[in-house]
């Protein structure tokens, strides 16, 4: 059974104009950070977003959160267009979509106690008596596995993993439907990553949350996602269920991302043939013509420079943006 779509983006585009270099040089350049991305997030499910640094993942997150206005495209929450909401209406939407950030240190105000940090979003969104708020915050702390007695402590008194729990509690405070988590475990130690991932799964089951879970590494997303999109230079190159993406990756970029993950098995280290991509992601100001991946693609042919491959099912059972999938 597929559950209903909660959050949807249709053909989102975000171009950031670049600063002009001289008086005479008219600036028409722009960073094409997100260039025609459509996603669907279903109730109680997780959409995983994967891609290298600079591929537009965080920009997509900020567009979905309505923290950035899109250049074009629409964002729908529960079927209603929220693309151009402002003021009170926008605040109401914000209560339904919350965000968890990568860096648990930078995203928490060091001068505020944990109680204040978790309670702040409440103040903006809900009328609450002070004592009721404290009780609510302590319930949230318990929910994410923090000791409620640490209500008056400050962020520096917590470890990285605990700080990320604080970030999650803050996001949960207003009772959102959707949480957009931008690399929530990338800065944590492996053993702590596992704790936070397990916590997020549990909260999803208990509270029926939907997640947009961003990672730069396909191994993190595997354990949590129901649907995955793989991004390259502002575009989705492949999407599908974890089974599609891990068992039948068809885009050479997805294949390269998978093959780059170190295998925690020394025996395989010598034998498994790695597909090492050469070079870096090209500049999003002037992306390659045709297929944007062609400058690093081992399968590129003449057609790839001429024609942009559409994201469609080409007989793989899931959408792939490649002229020569396989």
């Amino acid at each position: 059974m597929t559950s209903p779509v909660v959050l949807e983006a249709k053909n989102l585009v975000k171009y950031f104009p670049t600063v002009s270099k001289g008086l005479l040089q008219r600036s028409t350049d722009s960073v094409k950070a997100v260039d025609g991305v459509s996603v669907q997030v279903r109730a109680g499910q997780t959409l995983g977003v994967v891609g290298e640094s600079g591929c537009g993942k965080s920009t997509l997150a900020r567009l979905l959160m309505r923290l950035l206005p899109p250049t074009s495209g629409t964002v729908l929450l529960d079927g209603a267009d929220i693309t151009s909401l402002t003021g009170r209406e926008l605040r109401a939407v914000r209560a339904k979509i919350q965000m968890v950030f990568q860096d648990p240190v930078a995203s928490l105000n060091p001068r505020h106690s944990v109680g204040q940090i978790i309670g702040t979003p409440l103040k903006f969104l809900k009328e609450n008596s002070a004592s009721g708020a404290k009780e609510h915050v302590q319930e949230l702390m318990a929910l994410v596995g923090l000791n409620p007695e640490h209500y008056n402590r400050y962020p520096h008194e917590f470890s990285g993993g605990q700080r990320q729990r604080i970030g999650i509690a803050r996001a949960l405070a207003v009772g959102p439907q959707v949480i957009v988590a931008d690399e929530p475990v990338s800065a944590l130690d492996v053993s702590i990553q596992a704790q936070v991932l397990n916590l997020m799964e549990k909260l999803q089951r208990d509270l029926g949350l939907s997640y947009v879970f961003i990672a730069h590494d396909l191994s993190v997303v595997r354990h949590i996602a129901d649907e995955i999109i793989v991004m390259y230079l502002g575009k989705v190159v492949e999407s599908g269920t974890p089974k599609d993406v891990y068992s039948a990756p068809s885009h050479p970029y997805t294949q390269a991302l998978l093959s780059a993950i170190p295998l925690a098995d020394p025996r395989a280290a010598g034998t498994h043939k790695r597909m090492v991509l050469t070079g870096d992601v090209p500049s999003p100001i002037d992306p390659p013509s045709g297929c944007r991946f062609r400058t690093r693609c081992p399968r590129a042919q003449d057609l790839c420079a001429l024609e942009e491959p559409a994201l469609i099912d080409r007989g793989q059972g899931h959408p792939v943006a490649c002229h020569f999938p396989g």
């Binding site: 053993s191 596992a194 704790q195 991932l197 397990n198 799964e201 396909l218 191994s219 993190v220 595997r222 354990h223 949590i224 996602a225 974890p242 891990y246 998978l258 993950i261 295998l263 925690a264 098995d265």
Partner: peptide, 14 residues
């Protein structure tokens, strides 16, 4: 999290 080790599901933690 290795790729062959399990699909979705709780990870062992310390």
């Amino acid at each position: 999290r290795s790729l062959d080790n399990s699909e979705r599901g709780a990870l062992h933690t310390i």
